[in-house]
Design a protein around this nucleic acid. Structure first.
Lengths: 115, 115
DNA sequence: ATTAATAGTTTCATTTTAGTAACTATGTTA
DNA sequence: TAACATAGTTACTAAAATGAAACTATTAAT
């Protein structure tokens, strides 16, 4: 699988993590290695099929590392690669903005913050 | 339209800009006010329908401002609100990461898993 | 009278994405 | 012997997003 990167770096980033689930996966892996089941639980509302598909694609693009243990029942661990970890500033920026937005919505009259 | 914001700020951000098109719209509006046609051209490959739908939704969530001029032919200008502009650090982080990623992949610009 | 320009809307078809449920594998435990 | 646990896969279905093309409105220019 070979693809030419877009000219705009923002589009490059989008190409790899525009998916909502991928970002949540990264968020949850930033705190450390997790097993498949743990990820499924911490993300919530994601189906096995979709989680598997996203993890596979992130493996292909070099964002996560998959380690299989030869055990029964199966044991698989997912860890961010160095490239994956390097997304930390992006996630942090998103976190900060989301926090800030809570305080903005009132004056802007857009959405309603949680009680 | 009322919606409860998610507990996690990252999810709040995703709720508003997880869409690939929205991020490209923001990218192009960060450099200043643009008309509908300019946006369509600078984003490239987006249909009128989808561009309109995205702009409308961003208006609703308080990210962009729509200004209609009573002229013929029609003249409509889109500008980021203050909230919209505040996404600059997120876009910058994405830009930087995209740039960095280039150095992690092959010299021919092909996308191959680093490491 | 016809054409051009801009910013749309509407309709229909297609594609993409996602969800559900059933099924696989296998050693351990009851 | 049967159920349990984990990490999947596969087939089928449903929903959502997108694309293409036609259509609208209005006035100025040709």
């Amino acid at each position: 699988m070979k693809k030419i990167l877009p000219a705009c770096p923002v589009e490059t980033t989008l190409m790899l993590i525009s998916d909502r689930w991928k970002i949540l996966i990264i968020r949850d892996l930033l705190s450390g290695t997790k097993r498949f089941g743990q990820l499924k639980k911490s993300i919530g509302n994601i189906s096995q099929k979709v989680l598997t598909a996203n993890l596979r694609s992130m493996e292909e693009t070099g964002l996560v590392n998959r380690k299989v243990f030869a055990e029964v029942p199966p044991h698989v661990e997912y860890t961010l690669t160095e490239t994956g970890y390097s997304l930390d500033p992006v996630l942090k920026a998103m976190y900060n903005w989301g926090e800030e937005y809570k305080w903005r919505v009132n004056s802007d009259g857009a959405l309603t913050p949680p009680e």
